[in-house]
Structure formats: C-alpha cells, structure tokens
Design a protein around this nucleic acid. Structure first.
Length: 570
DNA sequence: GCCGTTTTCGGCCCGACTGTTTTCAGTCG
C-alpha cells in the first residue's frame, strides 16, 4: 500500500465529511493526509513499528484507520461513508463553484453522482429549478465542467515563473500600478502551480483592476471587484489579482503567499497573544495596527525570525523560527558552478565552447561537461575515443581561460545490476563522474536499492544524477529505500543531485530534506542541453531551499579548488 | 479528530465576491 494511496483515502474521507456537514473533522483528516503524503519512508514501516502517531496530525483514531488500510487494504469507515454518499465528490467539487454543500444539494434533489450526470442536468435546465440555485449557477457549472477536465493539470514551475514575470512586467508598464509582486505557491517555489496570485498596490484600484481584466490574453473574467479580480488567460492559467493599500502590503504578501497551513499556525500564534492577523495587518487587543507594511515586521512582532517563503508549509519552520534556529538557506549568488552539462558531443544543442561562454556570462566560475556515455546501449553519447579527444579540447579551453575552469566529466549509465557502462580506467581520468539510471525503471524496490548502492559505492562515482527518475506530470519515480541510499551516499562520499530541469526537480524537496538530515551532500545541476537551460539553476535552487538546504550542503557552492579536493577524496 | 504560551476540554483563520437571498450562505483562496 503506497503512501499516496493512503493519503488519497484520507483526503476523500475529509471531502465526504464535508459533504455530511461534519465540522472540524475534515481539517483533521486533511492534515493527516498531508503528513502521510510528504513522508519519505513507507507508511507501512511506521505502522509496523507502532510509531504512526508520531506523524503530526495523526492521533489515535486516524492512526488506527491508517493501520487498518495498511493491514487489510481497505477501511470499513471509509466504505460506509462512500455508501452514504455514493458520489464522485472529487470530480464534482473540482468544478468551479461547486463545493461540498452544493454537491450534497445536487445529490439529494437531483440524484447527481458523477460529472456526466451533472453535465446532463445542467444541459437539461434542471439545476436552475433547484431551490437555492439559479440560472447563473447552472451556466457557471456548465462552463466549469469543461474547465475542470482541462484544468486538472497543474503547471510546472518552469512555465509558471516566466509567465508570472511577464505578466507583472506588463501590468507595471500600464503605469497604473505602484508595485506588482507574485505571491502564492509560486513564491514558495512549489514544483507545480495551480494558479497565479499577483499582489499589487495601485492608487486607482478600479482603473488598475480594469486594466488587468482587459489584458489582451484574458480569455474569461471570473470575478471583478476593486480589491480582487480573477481571470483565465488563453492557455488556461487562472490569475488572481489583489490590490491592497500600501500600508497593508506586507501583511497581504504574507497572507497570499501561504501556505494555508502556515498561515493558520501564524494566526493562532497571534490569537495566543490576544492579537489578530489578517491580510490587512497585525492588530493588537484594541484593534490598533502593529505591523503590516512589510512581511518582516509581522514575523518579528510575533517573536519569530523571518521565515523564507520556501519554508512556509507548517513543517516545523515556525517552531524553529521561534528559537532562532532556522537554516540559512542556500542562495543563487552562492552558486559558483554547474555540474551537469551536455554539449554537441552527445545530445546537447550547443558546442562546448558556447556552453562555456554562456556559463561565464551568467557569472559562474566553473562548469562540468558531462555528456552521455555510449559504451553500451545509449545512442548519441560519446565513445571512449571521443571522450579522450574531448579531454584534449577541455584542456585547450582551460588553457585559454583565466578565472574559469572547465571540468572534464561524463554522465555514465547505471546498468541493471548497478555496474556502469564506462570502464574504470577511463573514469579515473576524469575530474567528475555522474552516474544515472536511464533504463530498467521497474525493478523491485529491493533490487533498485541495491542497484543504486552499488553505483554509489563505486569509488569513481561522484554524483548520482536525478536519483528517483521521476518526471513531473509524466511518471512517478522508482521505488527504493531512500534512507538507506542516503546513508550509503554519506559513507561513500557520493553526492546526490538536485536536477534543476523543471520537468525533473529530482530529488524533490521532501527527499532533499531527508537527505540533509542524514548528512548527505547535494549537487544542483541544470542538466542543460541548450544555452537557455543554464537558467534552470533557479528552479533547482528553489527546490533545494524548499528542502531546507544550506550553502554548506551544496557541492557547487564551493570554490573550484575545494570542489576538486572533495572529488578526489571521495 | 487533534491538540496544548488560553486548554487533557474546548476550542478549531478570515475576508472578498457571487448569486440568491431580502439579510445571507456558499465558495474560494
């Protein structure tokens, strides 16, 4: 039984309880579901070790239910709930404007259970006849159904961030905004984004909101007030704009950055002091504002050190901010090099010299050329002969450069049994060896763990690239005992990559945090195949920060001499 | 159902917008 499956059941219970009108319990189930979801070890292990209630939000009752799911594959309580409301709630509430109350109303009045039935009822004009609903709701539902199908996918960070920046630039250019900033999950650096939250200051809010909903690529206006407007852009991305007074900007930025769980915890902290926190500011007992213009003020008044957006998930950051023990997160200026780069020697689109030039322009002081190897099955990689010629080219380039270093490397394939497809005598010649799995993704958890460990313990291997092999929105990563893999990595002095390609972001933030706890060293690499891909570093960095990584945890923050020393000793 | 700088009992975030209402409930973030 996978963690994801258990989490999904808990989420569905929360929805069903919502539908039933039960107060408070839904939140408890969602919180537990979240904890299970972000767990990096198998939930079964916690159950067998009797440590299930160590998970935040899991008490006796939910703990027992999780155990039942793990042990029997089903949950009586859940089956009963489903019997009571045999409704495809997930699909129905996925429709914009339909929440649990409306879903219940629709089920009880019209017997609607599925998206198809909802669509038919809307087309037949039956929804407008239900007391409490009307023609507007019916139209909205009909429109929402098409969207629900289309919008199920979240957009990757690599698309959302450039889009948000472009939008902010265009709003600023209207001259109607004094300040425009992206907030929401994008600001927290999440790997996928549901919709964009933009926060703004404008002296003429009405005109500014008007300009926003009138942008040429707005396909539909979902809401349009003076403080809040929502649109859907061509391509389906929903954008929410909030216009706030200057004195509340910090409070609003804090509030709309989230996460929801972080905000709730923060509000509780305010309430504990007899204060109130909302998007307009932090207020004392008498309702006098004591902070709100800047985010920093809110945190400091609540006796917390400033919490970077990437940490705001209520995963222990508030407690650590209270004792002043937050990590000092790795930042972009600390990154000195890129340790994963392809060129036209293999499947890259730019030549070695072009890559070097582009990296220098970005202010890096070294890069590692790590083309795919072609010693066995991989096509389009470098052969042993080509690799030695590439070594000559790299030596020649280094000869010409001052203050920049090109490291000779390779991305070797980890074969089914954990051996590499490049002979050790050649690996020894290189500055850096990256090893990665590119085939046989479906081994058992045990076989995969052994395979990775064998590669990790090869003395020539320095970095395991994209360790889990997941591709966001395409395929899950393969199963392995990650704790064990990380422990072996620490012992063998083999680093784990944070692959910065926005489709990969692998390791993900949860596993990064786990790896760091175990003592692992990370290497953030762009896996660049073009000059533009060097810009992926930002996504890898955000992900590393979400995993609580500090500069000292990241190999490529080191000066090149330190790096080379580490590589030799490993 | 969970949890503890109000608490082992009694709380549990809060405001904007919309549609349907004639004073507010539902949804969303």
């Amino acid at each position: 039984m996978k963690n994801k499956t258990v989490a999904r059941i808990l989420y569905e219970i929360a929805d069903l309880l919502d539908l039933d009108g039960v107060p408070f319990k839904p939140r408890a189930y969602r919180r537990a579901a979240q904890a299970v979801e972000s767990l990096t070890t198998p939930i079964e292990d916690l159950v067998t070790e009797g440590r299930i209630s160590e998970l935040p939000g899991v008490g006796e009752a939910i703990g027992k239910k999780i155990a039942e799911i793990v042990e029997t594959g089903r949950l009586e309580y859940y089956e009963k709930l489903k019997e009571k409301f045999p409704v495809d709630l997930f699909a129905l509430t996925g429709v914009e404007g339909v929440g649990p109350k409306t879903a219940k109303l629709l089920y009880e009045s019209l017997g609607i259970r599925t998206l198809e039935e909802l669509e038919r009822a809307a087309r037949d004009g039956r929804i407008r006849k239900v007391k409490g609903l009307g023609p507007k709701t019916e139209e909205r539902i009909l429109r929402g159904i098409g969207e629900a199908r289309r919008m199920e996918e979240r957009v990757r960070l690599g698309e959302a961030l450039p889009l948000a920046r472009d939008l902010c630039r265009r709003l600023t250019e209207t001259g109607l905004f004094d300040r425009v900033e992206p907030a929401g999950s994008l600001r927290r650096g999440r790997e996928t984004i549901g919709d964009l939250d933009i926060l703004a200051i404008a002296s003429e809010p009405n005109g500014a909101a008007e300009a926003f909903v009138s942008l040429p690529d707005v396909e539909e206006v979902l809401a349009h007030g003076a403080k809040k407007a929502s649109v859907r852009l061509e391509g389906g991305m929903q954008v929410d704009l909030r216009i706030v007074p200057e004195g509340s900007f910090g409070a609003a930025l804090q509030y709309f950055t989230g996460s929801k769980a972080h905000n709730i915890a923060l509000r509780k902290r305010a309430i504990g002091r007899g204060w109130k926190l909302n998007e307009y500011g932090l207020f004392d007992e008498k309702g006098n504002p004591i902070a709100g213009k800047a985010e920093e003020g809110i945190y400091s008044k609540l006796a917390l050190s400033f919490i970077p957006p990437e940490l705001r998930e209520d995963r222990g950051e508030i407690e650590q901010a209270a004792e002043g023990s937050l990590p000092s997160l790795v930042s972009l200026p600390e990154i000195r090099g890129d340790l994963h780069i392809h060129t036209t020697w293999s499947d890259g689109k730019a030549s070695l010299e072009e890559m070097v030039e582009a990296a220098r322009e970005r202010g890096l002081s070294y890069i590692a050329i790590t083309d795919h190897a072609r010693f066995s099955e991989m096509i389009g990689g470098v052969s042993p002969d080509e690799l030695s010629r590439q070594l000559d080219e790299i030596a020649a380039v280094n000869e010409k450069l001052a203050g920049f270093r090109v490291l000779a490397g390779v991305e070797a394939n980890i074969l089914r049994d954990g051996s590499l497809d490049v002979p050790d005598r050649i690996l020894k010649e290189l500055d850096i060896v990256i090893a990665a799995i590119h085939s046989h993704f479906h081994l058992s958890r045990d076989e995969m763990t052994k395979r990775l460990i064998r590669a990790i313990e090869n003395p020539n291997v320095d970095v395991i690239a994209h360790p889990t092999g997941r591709k966001i929105g395409e395929r899950p990563g393969y199963e392995a005992d990650w704790d064990e893999v990380f422990h072996r990595g620490v012992k063998a002095r083999t680093a784990l990559e944070v692959n910065a390609n926005p489709i990969r972001l692998d390791l993900n933030a949860d596993l990064i945090r786990r790896a760091i706890d175990i003592g692992a060293t990370l290497a953030i690499g762009t896996d660049a195949h073009t000059i533009e891909h060097l810009g992926f570093m930002e996504y890898g960095l955000l992900t590393a920060r979400r995993g609580w990584a500090e500069g000292k945890d990241v190999l490529n923050t080191r000066p090149v001499d330190d790096l080379l020393a580490w590589l030799k000793s490993g």
